[in-house]
Amino acid sequence: MNVFRLSGDVSHLLAILILLMKIWKTRSCAGISGKSQILFALVYTTRYLDLFTSFISPYNTAMKVFFIASSYATIYLIYLKFKATYDRNHDTFRMEFLVLPVLVLAFVVNHDFTPLEILWTFSIYLESVAILPQLFMVSKTGQAETITSHYLFALGMYRALYIVNWVYRYYFEGFYDLIAIIAGVVQTVLYCDFFYLYVTKVLKGKQLTLPA
């Protein structure tokens, strides 16, 4: 474990807590893409199947359980509890356009052709594009609530910090995993446009609006 990975995990945890707080406090999931949350639940479910087979540390297990539980709780809040506030008309990204190519790629490019490893690879590839429905929804509505932009910033920073962690591990531990690194870079690049708007607008107290 290193400070970059730890701060990445904390940022990830913070993002999830901000999202849950936003939905629970405002009793509304306006502006939140349910499709991205479904994709995240799929990412954690397929990646953390080793929860029962390999024990790394109490921290690792606790975080995995939290990520899985919170992703399903968010889906429950969006599609059941506060479904009247779910903005279905603006959450129209076709998830199959993400899941199918990622599934094929996981079968073609992986480290080991075993079920657990292919599911892990699928999860890594899917996570890199899982935010697209949410970013698409923000661009379609042309704006995002400030709390939602904080959620996206924390979520984007988590994998950006993981990239620093991979550089650190390469130089100090000699380990690297190209699948995780390339997917992580793609994932972070997808946020760049949003990061620019967040820094130039939200941090100056303005509303996050996109040029419609």
């Binding site: 995990d9 390999s54 380990f175 690297y176």
Partner: peptide, 10 residues
């Protein structure tokens, strides 16, 4: 490439 030990990352 040297693989990360059994995916010890989240």
């Amino acid at each position: 490439n040297k693989r990360m030990q059994k995916h010890d990352e989240l």
